[in-house]
């Protein structure tokens, strides 16, 4: 746990944690609103948007990526409506078709375009490049106080930290609105809470988390973190406040444990190479959800038969 850890593991673990928490927080509300798949959908739809933004601007800067992702989301909404109305196909299927098609189109675009100069390729889109986000200038823990070394931190760390802090702040500020409107939208509207705008804001927040996390850790983590930590957290408690704290803890645990297991786990079993950190983080979050399903204290409530009704 010395210089080598600071150099090669500290920054990827922190970036993974920030990404996981940024996705898990809005995930809590998406799941309770029965919109869990929106997170999945967003992380698919943003790919072609990001690729097109890159082709137009030639950079992987945050603002063009965000605009590209937003434009792709708008195109997706229009396509879903078109498929639903013209094809007379039920909304769930229409969504599934559009998202998968757009993601596939993004992959094709990515293959055909020259992105060799930047970290943007199909594997990166799925798995991110967490392992490469290391802090080479660091010589040990003392580097945390060395301005020259700090200046050489991977830019993804700062970006992800800012997005994570933004999402934590938004969740805290709009907590009461989110809680009331997620439980009882009609009541919230009667109170004068702008429930429709709030629901839209939640999806936009999830999209910001998805785009930021996508850049650093790939879409597999995004999909897993929107759903697994909040779903496991729901099984731990019957109070929203506690659930959200559990989801943050599970997200952070998945990131740390997943990164360590990916780096060292295969070596323990005699394998020569480490496995993808993003893949392992997502797997760990799934295992946590599995354990919560088996052993968590409040697992009986999920899917339990409604009393009368």
């Amino acid at each position: 746990m010395g210089a080598e850890f600071v150099q090669f593991s500290l920054t990827p673990i922190l970036i993974g944690m920030f990404a996981a928490i940024a996705c898990a927080l809005p995930g809590n509300f998406l799941i309770l609103r029965r919109q869990a798949l929106i997170g999945d959908a967003i992380s698919h739809v943003v790919l072609p948007g990001i690729v097109v933004a890159f082709l137009l601007t030639g950079t992987v800067a945050a603002i063009p990526m965000m605009i590209g992702a937003a434009a792709a989301a708008i195109v997706a909404v229009i396509l879903i409506e078109a498929v639903r109305r013209l094809g007379r196909i039920e909304p769930g299927a229409a969504m599934g078709v559009v998202f998968t098609t757009l993601f596939a189109a993004g992959v094709l675009l990515l293959e055909q375009s020259d992105t060799s100069a930047v970290h943007l390729d199909v594997e990166h889109a799925l798995m991110g490049n967490l392992e490469s986000l290391i802090w080479l200038r660091a010589t040990g823990w003392e580097s945390l106080l060395d301005p020259a070394a700090l200046a050489a931190l991977p830019p993804e760390l700062g970006r992800m930290a800012v997005v994570c802090a933004l999402i934590v702040a938004l969740t805290a500020i709009f907590w009461r609105w989110l809680k009331i409107a997620t439980f009882d939208e009609g009541f919230a509207q009667a109170l004068g809470i702008p429930a429709a705008g709030l629901g839209f804001g939640l999806v936009v927040t999830a999209a910001i988390a998805a785009v930021a996390a996508f850049d650093a850790v790939g879409s597999i983590i995004v999909i897993a973190m929107f759903i697994c930590p909040p779903a496991a957290a729901r099984l731990m408690t019957n109070r929203l406040e506690v659930q959200v704290l559990w989801s943050v803890a599970f997200a952070a645990l998945s990131a740390v444990l997943g990164y360590v297991l990916a780096g060292y786990g295969p070596l323990w079993f005699g394998a020569a190479n480490a496995v993808s950190a993003a893949g392992m983080i997502a797997t760990v979050s799934g295992v946590i959800l599995g354990l919560a399903c088996l052993y968590a204290p409040h697992r009986a409530r999920i899917g339990a038969a409604r009393e009368d009704a």
Binding site: L32, W177, I180, T182, F183, D184, V242, R306
Partner: peptide
Amino acid sequence: ASVDWDFPATVLDVVQMGLYRRVGLL
């Protein structure tokens, strides 16, 4: 029947939602 009663909240949590106009957002 318009709400999901599996929502993670206690009885007191729900009643306190009625105080929103007096307590405010923050």
